[in-house]
Amino acid sequence: MNNYFRCFCAVLLLVFAGSLAAVDGPVIPHGKGDQCVADTDFMRRNHMDLIVHQRDETVIKGLRDEPFSLVECVACHAQTASDGVVLRVDAEGQFCQSCHAYAAVSIDCFSCHAAVPDSTDRTLGGNPAVGAPMAHSTVPLASQPPDLKLLAQLQFYVNALAENDHAKH
Protein backbone atom coordinates (compact mmCIF):
# COMPACT_ATOMS: atom_id res chain seq x y z
CA MET A 1 0.00 0.00 0.00
CA ASN A 2 2.82 2.26 0.98
CA ASN A 3 4.43 1.52 -2.39
CA TYR A 4 1.24 2.38 -4.25
CA PHE A 5 1.06 5.68 -2.41
CA ARG A 6 4.66 6.44 -3.33
CA CYS A 7 4.00 5.67 -6.96
CA PHE A 8 0.93 7.90 -6.92
CA CYS A 9 2.95 10.73 -5.39
CA ALA A 10 5.72 10.31 -7.97
CA VAL A 11 3.21 10.43 -10.84
CA LEU A 12 1.54 13.50 -9.33
CA LEU A 13 4.92 15.18 -9.01
CA LEU A 14 5.83 14.39 -12.61
CA VAL A 15 2.53 15.75 -13.93
CA PHE A 16 2.96 18.87 -11.81
CA ALA A 17 6.56 19.38 -13.01
CA GLY A 18 5.42 18.81 -16.61
CA SER A 19 2.67 21.40 -16.36
CA LEU A 20 5.11 23.87 -14.80
CA ALA A 21 7.60 23.36 -17.65
CA ALA A 22 4.86 23.85 -20.22
CA VAL A 23 3.89 27.19 -18.68
CA ASP A 24 7.47 28.30 -18.13
CA GLY A 25 8.50 28.31 -21.83
CA PRO A 26 10.72 30.96 -23.37
CA VAL A 27 9.19 34.34 -24.12
CA ILE A 28 10.29 35.07 -27.66
CA PRO A 29 10.12 38.63 -28.97
CA HIS A 30 8.16 39.00 -32.19
CA GLY A 31 10.16 39.79 -35.34
CA LYS A 32 9.30 42.34 -38.01
CA GLY A 33 6.64 41.49 -40.55
CA ASP A 34 3.79 38.99 -40.33
CA GLN A 35 5.81 35.84 -40.63
CA CYS A 36 9.33 34.48 -41.02
CA VAL A 37 10.76 33.33 -44.37
CA ALA A 38 9.13 29.96 -43.65
CA ASP A 39 6.55 28.53 -41.25
CA THR A 40 7.41 28.98 -37.59
CA ASP A 41 7.32 25.23 -36.91
CA PHE A 42 9.64 24.57 -39.83
CA MET A 43 12.04 27.32 -38.79
CA ARG A 44 12.14 26.12 -35.18
CA ARG A 45 13.17 22.65 -36.25
CA ASN A 46 15.40 23.46 -39.21
CA HIS A 47 16.87 26.97 -38.88
CA MET A 48 20.26 25.58 -37.90
CA ASP A 49 20.49 23.44 -41.03
CA LEU A 50 19.35 26.31 -43.22
CA ILE A 51 21.91 28.66 -41.71
CA VAL A 52 24.78 26.19 -42.02
CA HIS A 53 23.84 25.48 -45.63
CA GLN A 54 23.66 29.20 -46.37
CA ARG A 55 26.97 29.77 -44.60
CA ASP A 56 28.85 27.44 -46.93
CA GLU A 57 27.07 28.77 -50.00
CA THR A 58 28.06 32.31 -49.08
CA VAL A 59 31.63 31.82 -47.90
CA ILE A 60 32.76 29.33 -50.51
CA LYS A 61 30.55 30.04 -53.54
CA GLY A 62 29.87 33.73 -52.94
CA LEU A 63 26.07 33.32 -53.07
CA ARG A 64 24.79 36.12 -50.91
CA ASP A 65 21.41 36.87 -52.43
CA GLU A 66 19.78 33.92 -50.70
CA PRO A 67 16.80 33.80 -48.36
CA PHE A 68 18.34 32.22 -45.27
CA SER A 69 21.18 34.62 -44.52
CA LEU A 70 22.07 35.40 -40.92
CA VAL A 71 22.10 39.11 -41.77
CA GLU A 72 18.41 38.85 -42.68
CA CYS A 73 17.66 36.97 -39.45
CA VAL A 74 19.23 39.79 -37.45
CA ALA A 75 17.56 42.50 -39.55
CA CYS A 76 14.09 41.17 -38.66
CA HIS A 77 14.62 39.84 -35.16
CA ALA A 78 16.69 42.58 -33.47
CA GLN A 79 14.43 44.56 -31.15
CA THR A 80 14.55 48.26 -30.38
CA ALA A 81 14.23 49.22 -26.73
CA SER A 82 12.00 52.10 -25.63
CA ASP A 83 15.02 54.42 -25.46
CA GLY A 84 15.79 53.73 -29.15
CA VAL A 85 18.75 51.45 -28.51
CA VAL A 86 18.77 48.42 -30.82
CA LEU A 87 19.36 45.31 -28.73
CA ARG A 88 21.58 42.45 -29.77
CA VAL A 89 19.71 39.30 -30.79
CA ASP A 90 21.94 37.34 -28.41
CA ALA A 91 21.26 39.62 -25.42
CA GLU A 92 19.33 38.19 -22.51
CA GLY A 93 15.65 37.75 -23.31
CA GLN A 94 16.17 38.51 -26.99
CA PHE A 95 15.15 36.37 -29.94
CA CYS A 96 18.11 33.97 -30.25
CA GLN A 97 19.17 33.88 -26.63
CA SER A 98 15.76 33.37 -25.02
CA CYS A 99 15.12 30.11 -26.86
CA HIS A 100 18.70 28.89 -26.73
CA ALA A 101 18.91 29.50 -22.98
CA TYR A 102 15.68 27.52 -22.57
CA ALA A 103 16.98 24.65 -24.69
CA ALA A 104 20.46 24.86 -23.10
CA VAL A 105 22.15 25.11 -26.50
CA SER A 106 24.93 27.67 -26.69
CA ILE A 107 25.47 29.50 -29.96
CA ASP A 108 28.69 30.98 -31.19
CA CYS A 109 27.41 32.94 -34.20
CA PHE A 110 27.62 36.36 -32.63
CA SER A 111 31.18 36.25 -31.36
CA CYS A 112 32.02 37.06 -35.01
CA HIS A 113 28.76 38.08 -36.70
CA ALA A 114 27.01 41.39 -36.16
CA ALA A 115 24.14 40.95 -33.69
CA VAL A 116 22.45 44.22 -34.63
CA PRO A 117 21.46 45.42 -38.12
CA ASP A 118 23.99 47.50 -40.02
CA SER A 119 21.94 50.67 -40.09
CA THR A 120 22.39 50.85 -36.32
CA ASP A 121 24.93 53.23 -34.87
CA ARG A 122 27.68 50.78 -33.98
CA THR A 123 28.52 52.61 -30.76
CA LEU A 124 25.02 51.82 -29.46
CA GLY A 125 25.27 48.10 -30.17
CA GLY A 126 25.80 47.21 -26.54
CA ASN A 127 27.23 44.02 -25.12
CA PRO A 128 25.64 40.60 -25.00
CA ALA A 129 23.46 39.87 -21.99
CA VAL A 130 22.85 43.50 -21.08
CA GLY A 131 19.57 44.06 -22.93
CA ALA A 132 16.40 43.95 -20.85
CA PRO A 133 13.94 41.14 -21.68
CA MET A 134 11.30 42.34 -24.08
CA ALA A 135 7.62 41.49 -23.95
CA HIS A 136 5.81 40.28 -27.06
CA SER A 137 5.54 43.11 -29.53
CA THR A 138 1.97 44.30 -29.99
CA VAL A 139 2.73 46.76 -32.77
CA PRO A 140 0.68 45.93 -35.90
CA LEU A 141 3.09 44.92 -38.63
CA ALA A 142 2.82 45.52 -42.32
CA SER A 143 1.92 42.40 -44.25
CA GLN A 144 4.21 41.32 -47.03
CA PRO A 145 3.18 39.60 -50.26
CA PRO A 146 4.50 36.03 -50.47
CA ASP A 147 7.79 35.74 -52.35
CA LEU A 148 7.20 33.02 -54.96
CA LYS A 149 10.88 32.48 -55.75
CA LEU A 150 11.60 32.09 -52.08
CA LEU A 151 8.76 29.63 -51.61
CA ALA A 152 10.05 27.52 -54.51
CA GLN A 153 13.51 27.52 -53.00
CA LEU A 154 12.12 26.61 -49.61
CA GLN A 155 10.41 23.58 -51.14
CA PHE A 156 13.79 22.58 -52.57
CA TYR A 157 15.43 22.90 -49.15
CA VAL A 158 12.63 20.95 -47.46
CA ASN A 159 13.06 18.13 -49.97
CA ALA A 160 16.83 18.16 -49.52
CA LEU A 161 16.47 18.06 -45.73
CA ALA A 162 13.93 15.24 -45.95
CA GLU A 163 16.25 13.25 -48.24
CA ASN A 164 19.09 13.84 -45.81
CA ASP A 165 16.93 12.54 -42.97
CA HIS A 166 16.06 9.40 -44.91
CA ALA A 167 19.70 8.83 -45.75
CA LYS A 168 20.58 8.92 -42.05
CA HIS A 169 18.00 6.30 -41.03
Partner: peptide, 16 residues
Protein backbone atom coordinates in the same frame (compact mmCIF):
# COMPACT_ATOMS: atom_id res chain seq x y z
CA UNK B 1 41.08 39.91 -28.56
CA UNK B 2 37.32 39.69 -28.33
CA UNK B 3 35.75 41.96 -30.92
CA UNK B 4 32.38 43.64 -30.66
CA UNK B 5 30.39 45.85 -33.02
CA UNK B 6 31.33 43.97 -36.16
CA UNK B 7 29.82 44.95 -39.47
CA UNK B 8 27.47 42.47 -41.05
CA UNK B 9 29.54 42.27 -44.24
CA UNK B 10 32.73 41.45 -42.30
CA UNK B 11 32.26 38.90 -39.52
CA UNK B 12 35.44 38.95 -37.42
CA UNK B 13 36.27 37.19 -34.18
CA UNK B 14 38.89 36.23 -31.65
CA UNK B 15 40.97 33.16 -32.40
CA UNK B 16 40.74 33.31 -36.18
Amino acid sequence: ETISNQKSIAPRGKGT
